[in-house]
Simulated assay, not measured.
Amino acid sequence: MKRGVKALFLMMFLLGSVSAMADSKLTVEECNDYPFKPVVGEVTHAQLVRELAELESVGYDPHKNDYYYPNDLQAAQARLHTKYVADCAPATGQGG
């Protein structure tokens, strides 16, 4: 019973975290970092993890066994780019 309660609380916490992330705006630092800006040198593991989190915040599910895999990823990348333009273009003076 205790294990089930812990799992339920953990799931509620994770859902709350994802919901909070989905509505958040990108910070200036995020707007000026990978994956939105080209990287000189190697991309770090932390940057890849952040990119995946950003893709998940716009609806991409990497764990789903999906017949439409490339299309779903590209659609999430397009949504992420739209989020970038909405959140970052006014601050950086850039457009689409």
Rank of each mutant, 00 (worst) to 15 (best):
R79L: 03
T27E: 13
A76F: 11
G96I: 04
Y84T: 04
R79M: 02
P70F: 11
Y67A: 14
V39K: 06
P90T: 07
L10P: 02
F9T: 08
Q74P: 07
M11V: 10
L26R: 06
P62S: 13
T82R: 01
P62V: 10
M21C: 05
Y60A: 05
A20T: 04
L48P: 01
V43Q: 04
K64L: 13
V5E: 13
K37M: 15
P62G: 08
Q47C: 08
A89T: 11
K2C: 07
R50N: 00
H63I: 12
K64Y: 15
G93N: 03
V40N: 04
V28E: 13
R79F: 06
M1E: 08
G93Y: 01
V49Q: 06
R50C: 01
G96Y: 01
A53N: 03
H63T: 13
D61L: 11
V39T: 10
C31F: 11
C31Y: 14
R3F: 10
A75M: 14
V58P: 02
K64A: 15
K37L: 14
R3W: 08
C88L: 06
A89E: 03
D61A: 10
S19N: 12
V40E: 05
L48A: 00
F13C: 07
V28G: 08
L48N: 03
A46Y: 03
C88H: 05
E29M: 09
H45I: 04
E56W: 04
D23P: 00
E42K: 11
D33N: 15
Y68W: 08
Y60Q: 12
G96R: 00
E51I: 03
A20I: 06
L10Q: 06
L73W: 13
F13A: 09
N32G: 07
K6P: 05
R50H: 04
L73Q: 14
K6Y: 09
K2Q: 12
F9L: 11
V5Y: 06
K2W: 14
M12G: 12
N65V: 12
E54L: 05
M12H: 08
S17W: 02
G96M: 03
T92M: 14
A20N: 09
F13E: 06
E56A: 01
T82H: 03
A20R: 11
K25N: 13
D23M: 08
N32T: 15
G95N: 05
A53K: 03
E54I: 07
K25S: 10
P90A: 12
P35H: 09
C88R: 03
Q47M: 12
Y69L: 15
M11H: 10
P62I: 10
E30K: 05
N71C: 05
V18S: 11
D66S: 15
L14G: 01
C88K: 00
K25V: 05
L52W: 06
D72W: 10
P35V: 09
G93L: 05
D33I: 07
G95H: 06
R79N: 10
T92Q: 02
G59E: 11
S24Y: 08
R50Y: 01
A22I: 03
P38L: 12
A46P: 02
L55Y: 07
D33T: 14
Q74D: 13
G59V: 09
F9A: 08
K83R: 03
A89Y: 02
V43S: 00
C88N: 01
V39H: 08
R79S: 14
F13S: 08
S19C: 13
